[in-house]
């Protein structure tokens, strides 16, 4: 046991000396900030309600303009000004008095045709179009309601609108899983490098001469890599907590991510043992992890979803079972790889 701790300690000392772990945390911080930037940017483009004072002014004309006005009343941030005819509405648009033009006319077959004109190529276009869509959908709902008796199956009444920020769902379903899983990949990559480097420099031979078994070497290296992963994840979760995002079930999340780290480290040890050099090993490792994680995320109850549900406090018994299952798979994989490597040794 002692020799494993020594090896693990040596691994960590190496990381500390090169300050690589700081670089790793810096990279993670950058990714987190940038994905937040992206989402804040996109959300403000797509959900004008999230922007304060995103008011659009619509110039309307046509014989169905009254209903349109009524619909606009239900949509926050949209107001309709009726004009006598389409030409007047358009000149208002040209004068910048209105953001968009809607000409709503009733056709012979009983439908309403809305010709919408939105400005071309401006930053606001997206916001305007999103608001227009909201307004016209409300209009459609109203129209549909008045014709409900003609429908074979009537639509369900909608509950009231509620204010919410799409950023909330993003934080729990994308940001937290991302932050929790980045250290997992980093740990696996570290193990690949550590083993291939020892072989490349010839220090693996020295280690072999020392009174340690291959299994102990693997254990020591794995312990260091697996140990630093939950620490980083905990750091992120605490940072989020300090930032006002409460994360539930921290313990199970860390257990799940430790299990996954063990699994990924097992893959890394296996790859490093088989591949001829670092280049091949890293390539194979990237592909393997991409495949493993991509595949797992695509499945129902994948690890990303499990973390999201744990963090948002919507976990149930199945999530618990899932965590235990991942732990079991990881343990089995690690022990299996360790056994094979102990018997076969590292490739020459």
């Amino acid at each position: 046991m002692d020799s494993r701790l020594t090896i693990a300690g040596r691994e960590l000392a190496g990381l500390r000396a090169e300050k690589t772990i700081l670089l790793a945390i810096g990279i993670q911080l950058f990714i987190a900030m940038f994905s937040s930037f992206l989402v804040v940017g996109l959300v403000s483009m797509y959900d004008p309600g999230a922007l304060d004072g995103a008011e659009i002014e619509v110039a309307a004309a046509g014989d169905a303009v009254d209903d349109l006005e009524r619909a606009a009343g239900d949509v926050p941030g949209a107001s309709v000004t009726p004009y006598d005819d389409a030409g007047a509405a358009r000149s208002a648009f040209e004068r910048n008095a209105a953001d968009a033009v809607v000409v709503a006319t009733r056709t012979e077959d009983g439908r309403v045709s809305a010709a919408v004109t939105a400005p071309d190529s401006t930053v606001e276009t997206t916001v305007i179009v999103v608001q227009l869509r909201e307004m016209l959908r409300t209009y459609e709902l109203n129209e549909r309601d008045s014709r409900a008796s003609y429908l074979e199956e009537s639509p369900l009444p909608l509950p009231d609108r509620s204010d919410t920020s799409p950023y909330f769902t993003f934080t729990y379903t994308v940001l937290i899983p991302l932050l929790v899983f980045l250290p997992v990949f980093i740990s696996g990559s570290l193990v690949v490098d550590s083993i291939t480097e020892e072989r490349d420099q010839g220090t693996m031979e020295l280690l072999r001469v020392a009174p340690v078994t291959i299994a102990e070497i693997v254990d020591g290296k794995a312990a260091a890599a697996i140990g630093i992963a939950p620490a980083q994840a905990l750091l992120w979760l605490l940072l989020l907590e300090a930032n006002g995002t409460s994360v539930a079930n921290v313990g199970p999340i860390l257990a799940l991510m430790t299990a996954l780290t063990t699994l990924v480290v097992a893959v890394a040890v296996g790859v490093a043992a088989v591949a001829p050099d670092r280049r091949a090993a890293q390539l194979l490792y990237s592909v393997a992890v991409l495949v493993l994680f991509g595949g797992a995320t695509a499945m129902a109850g994948g690890p990303a979803n499990a973390v999201a549900r744990l963090a948002i406090d919507s976990a149930d018994a199945t999530t618990g079972v899932l965590v235990v299952t991942y732990a079991a798979i990881a343990a089995a994989a690690y022990l299996g790889v360790r056994r094979v490597v102990a018997v076969e040794g590292f490739a020459r």
Partner: peptide, 18 residues
């Protein structure tokens, strides 16, 4: 089956430079 009642509004959207 009753398209008119189900989708009473049709929209044509076009973009125009000011």
């Amino acid at each position: 089956p009753n398209r008119t009642a189900a989708f009473p509004v049709t929209v044509t959207l076009r973009y125009v430079g000011r």
